[in-house]
Amino acid sequence: MAADFKTAQPVEYYRQFLKKDVRPDGRELGEIRSTIVNIGSISTAEGSALVKLGNTTVICGIKAELCTPTNDEPKKGFVVPNVDLPPLCSPRFRPGPPSEQAQVVSQFIADVLKDSKMVNHEDLCIAEGKIVWVLYCDMMCLDYDGNVIDACIISLLAALRNVALPSIEVDEETAKPKLTSSTSSTMTVQSLPVSTSFAIFDNSILIADPTNEEENLATGVVTVVTNECGELCALHKPGGSSLSESQIQECVKRSFSRGDEIRKLLDETFNSLDR
């Protein structure tokens, strides 16, 4: 009976739950699903991480290649993020060129990467003006259950910390790069931005970490990206119902606490790896 009601009137069904301040999957309005992080799962990549945010699963693999830098910035390397939403993860994505959703998420992550200065591009320089590293970060969603932006950013953060670049030197005689030693150095990730997404329901209620069904019923979405210094890297609200100051304040507060949680989780994961 509940299933019929849900199909016929999904918004009303959802409202019934919200009246009791709870969501259909049992969470409270501000509660975020359990996050699982697994690093180094792809042995052929320089760095990798798998993140599960409830059912949403994203795997990030980073491949490092060599290339020549641009003329205006001869000391800077490149980091190229790309998000792929294949037909595997959800029936709404069809095979073919990247969907609009994938392009928008890729662009958002590229902006966050640039604005938050996660990676110092000058660290990626090997020989000024001749050879630099380019890191291709490919995030593939394996299971789409809402809030793919948060999962992608966490996986990108974890994978970047996991990246081990081999040390390369340019041979003076042949002017070709060669491996100096078999040890590799890990990347220093300078800032640790974490994003938290909210959905606005019925123009007034804020729900943290929406699932796929909640995203479809929402009247608006907000994504807040915070870093460890208590600053905001992005407050992205693409249209949707209007938000008052107090609601924005609530979102920002929740994202700061979420950011601390995730950074602690990542620290624990990396510490356990070293052990």
Binding site: D111, K114, D115, S116, K117, N227, G230, E231, L232, C233, A234, L235, H236, K237, P238, G239, G240, S241, S242, L243, S244, I248, Q249, V252
Partner: peptide
């Protein structure tokens, strides 16, 4: 930082907000 806001005419609330760069909540 560069911030863009879109306000609607009835209650002057924010409909869209898009930001680039780092800033504090007070500055926002």
């Amino acid at each position: 930082a560069i911030l863009t806001f879109v306000f609607e005419s009835r209650d002057n609330e924010i409909i869209t907000s898009n930001t680039h760069g780092i800033y504090s909540i007070k500055q926002y």
